[in-house]
Design a binder for these strands. Structure first.
Lengths: 213, 213
DNA sequence: CGGAGTATTGAGTACTCTCAATGGAAGTGG
DNA sequence: CCACTTCCATTGAGAGTACTCAATACTCCG
C-alpha cells in the first residue's frame, strides 16, 4: 500500500476552510450532464438540501459525510473518478459533499433520470452499474466498520483505498488523520498511534514516497 | 419501539440448523420472476456462488451475512418485504443469504436484467428505486456502526428496525441477541447487557407484548 | 518570526470483549 | 410424563483496547 500519508504531505498547500460557493452545477453542459469543478474543501451540496442532482466524479476525490447527534462527523464515503454519489431515494440529500482534493464532477438531473434512462440504453447500463458499484463500496465500508480492532480497520482501509486509487489513476489523495478516523469511527489519536505502530513494524511507510505494504 | 424480544419468544418453534435445500429458485414463474419459499434458517445462496439471480422479499425476513477472517459473522442486512438483495456488481455473491424467518422471495435472472429493463419501463423504475433504497439501508447501517456506544447503536437499531417492520407489515421478526450483535459489531453479551439496562430504565420492554419506546 | 492547523505522544479512564458459569425454554426419547 | 439434551440468554469477573484530555512538535504560510 502506498502510505496514505504521502499525499497528505505534498498537498497541504491548497487548504480550504469553510465551503464558499454553493451554487449547483454551473459551466458547460453536455446533453446529459453539467460539468463543474470544485476546490479542495469546497462544498458540493449539504445534508438536507433538495437532491435535484446526483453526481459522478471525473477527476479528483469527493467526500460525503454527515454530522451525528453528538457532533462527530461520520464520513460516508470517498468518491474517486468514475464513482457516483448523491443519488438519493428521497427528495433530499442525506449527506453533505465536498472536495477532498480539487475535483471535477458531472451533475445529472435527478428528475430527468427516468426519461433519460428510457431513451438512452448506454446511460441506463452505466447508471445501473454505477449504482451497484456504489452499493458495493458502502458494503465494504460496513465490513470495515465491523472489524474489531483499530489496527485491522486501518490496515484493510489502506489496502482498499490504495487499490481504488490505483485503479482510478488517482495519485492525489490528501487524506488527513481525521478523515481516516471519521471514516472508520475511530479517534484521530488512535489513527495516529496505529499508523505509527504500523510504520514501526515496517508494514507501511509514513511520509516518504509511495511503496508497497 | 416494539421490543425486538417480542417476536423472538413466540417464534422459537420453527428452528433450523444448517441450510438444507440449495437449489436455485424453483416452483412457478411469472414473466419476470420465479417465486420461492424458504424456511427459517434455510439457505438461499452462499458467499462465493455465481450470482445468477437477485431477489426480492415478498413475505418474511431474509438475512445476508459474511464470515470475516477471524471467524466472526458480520450481518450485512435484514431484508423485509419489498427489499431487494443479492444484486451484485461482480459475477459472484459477496454474501450468504438465508431466511431469518420463513419467507417467500422472488428471484430475477441477473443476465436477463438488461433486456428486461430495456423492454419494461415499470420494472426499470422499480429496480432503480429498489436499488437506491437498498443503498439507503446500507448507508443507515454505516451510520449505525459509526455510533460510539453500544447503547446508542442498539437504541437506534431498534427504532430503525421497528420502523421498517411496521412499514412493511412485518410482525414476525425473530431476532436473536446474536443477530443484533453480529449486525452491530458487538458481542452477544454486550447486547444482552444493554437490553437489560434499557429495560431497567423503562426504555424498552423485554419479552412482553409489543409496545412503544 | 509568529500563527494556524495538524500530527504525535502521554496518562488515565471508560467501555466492550473474553472467558466462564448459571439459568431457562423447547424438543427428544424412554 | 419426566429426564436429558440443546440452544439461547443472562450475569460476573478480569483484561485489553480505544477514548478523552492535555501538552508538545511539526509544517506551511503570511
Amino acid at each position: 500500500v502506498g502510505s496514505a500519508k504521502d499525499n497528505l504531505v505534498h498537498l497541504f498547500g491548497p487548504r480550504a476552510a469553510g465551503g464558499v460557493s454553493a451554487e449547483p452545477p454551473a459551466v458547460d453542459a453536455g446533453a446529459v450532464g453539467l460539468s463543474r469543478t470544485v476546490r479542495r474543501g469546497e462544498r458540493i451540496f449539504t445534508e438536507g438540501e433538495t437532491a435535484d442532482f446526483f453526481y459522478k466524479v471525473v477527476s479528483g476525490v469527493v467526500r460525503t459525510y454527515t454530522i451525528l447527534d453528538d457532533g462527530r462527523r461520520q464520513i460516508a464515503g470517498f468518491h474517486l473518478p468514475g464513482d457516483v454519489f448523491g443519488l438519493e431515494a428521497g427528495t433530499h440529500h442525506r449527506f453533505s459533499a465536498n472536495g477532498l482534493s480539487a475535483a471535477t464532477i458531472v451533475a445529472y438531473s435527478r428528475p430527468d433520470l427516468d426519461t433519460l434512462l428510457e431513451a438512452n440504453n448506454a446511460l441506463r447500463k452505466q447508471v445501473l452499474t454505477s449504482l451497484v458499484l456504489e452499493l458495493d463500496r458502502v458494503q465494504d465500508h460496513v465490513l470495515l466498520l465491523g472489524h474489531k480492532t483499530a489496527r485491522e480497520k486501518i490496515e484493510v482501509f489502506l489496502l482498499c483505498i490504495a487499490e481504488r486509487a490505483s485503479r482510478s489513476q488517482t495519485s492525489n489523495l490528501p487524506l488527513q488523520r481525521s478523515d481516516i478516523a471519521d471514516f472508520l469511527g475511530l479517534s484521530r489519536e488512535t489513527v495516529s498511534r496505529t499508523l505509527t505502530q504500523l510504520a514501526c513494524n515496517g508494514i507501511i511507510e509514513v511520509k516518504g514516497r509511495p511503496n508497497e505494504r
